[in-house]
């Protein structure tokens, strides 16, 4: 029932960054993912849209092991996330250290920013590179200042998160993720907790990032933004992928009734708020 997959073969031998096949996940008795299939090619931007409770955030959190999947295959950069293949072909669960190593290559930006509250913006950014990647403090600091300039916050390097607006905090969080030089960045509703007038500044940073060729998976409610920057839009509902494809198809000419209804309801909201 899922739309035709954009399989590795399509991209002339380029290996996909993320491969998901039949990913299932339950919380207790509630099944939140019913077998998700998805490929994310390097340098591409994939937007996951859908009503709340559709499982898109859960799926995103599975990609960096913040949630464990129950069944299926989920590989990032050619490696099983959370497992390795043993000699007899069985899957062996990775220990915490190995999982940490996998997570280093996957950046994550959270809905509620989750900046380290007791550290300045600059300290937030260099914490990973210095503590985990063992970069020298001077190098990490230089890279961090460069990133802060890119997100337009060089003047806030020494501010604490409590002294920054939501939009500024989220831009620091993006810089923190970038400082690890990840191969892939996951965005979990990055603008949902922001005041409407602060959404634009965060989307601008993300747009620049997309143009620079970063591989991104974005859970978002910003349909116009998805249309603008996504290479692939995935519409999820009730734990299923209903349809996926280029934004012009999925957003412009949806084939499924449920997609159409969702887009209508979202547009309605946007019209009400004057957006």
């Amino acid at each position: 029932m899922t739309a035709k997959m954009h399989s590795p073969a399509d991209a002339a031998g380029i290996a996909p960054m993320v491969v998901a096949r039949g990913v299932e996940k339950s919380f207790g008795a509630v099944k939140v993912l019913h077998g998700i299939d998805l490929d994310v090619m390097p340098g591409k931007v994939v937007c996951l849209i859908g009503p709340s409770g559709s499982g898109k955030t859960t799926f995103l959190r599975c990609i960096n092991m913040l949630e464990k999947i129950d069944r299926g295959l989920l590989a990032v950069n050619g490696e099983h996330i959370g497992y390795r293949v043993g000699k007899d072909g069985r899957l062996c669960a990775l220990n915490e250290r190995e999982i940490s190593r996998q997570r280093r290559e996957i950046g994550m930006v959270f809905q509620r920013f989750n900046l380290f509250q007791h550290m300045t913006a600059l300290e937030n950014i260099i914490e990973g590179p210095v503590g985990v990647l063992k970069e020298s403090k001077a190098d990490a600091r230089e890279h961090a200042m460069d990133l802060l300039r890119r997100v337009g916050l060089a003047h806030k390097a020494d501010s604490f998160p409590s002294e920054l607006s939501g939009g500024q905090q989220q831009r620091v969080a993006i810089a923190r993720a970038l400082a690890m030089r990840p191969k892939l960045i996951l965005f979990d509703e990055p603008t949902s907790a922001l005041d409407p007038e602060l959404v634009g500044e965060v989307l601008d940073v993300m747009r620049k990032l997309a143009h620079s060729g970063m591989t991104m998976v974005i859970v978002t409610h910003e349909i116009a933004f998805a249309r603008d920057i996504a290479d692939i839009v995935v519409f999820m509902d009730g734990g299923w992928v209903i349809e996926s494809g280029p934004p012009a198809e999925v957003l412009g000419n949806p084939r499924h009734e449920r997609t159409r209804k969702f887009l209508q309801s979202v547009r309605g909201e946007n019209d009400c708020s004057g957006g």
Partner: peptide, 18 residues
């Protein structure tokens, strides 16, 4: 301490001790 702090630290690959 907010659980988001743990998740953010894990997402930059920090070990449990760190």
């Amino acid at each position: 301490v907010d659980k988001g702090q743990t998740e953010a630290a894990q997402s930059v690959g920090m070990s449990r001790a760190r």
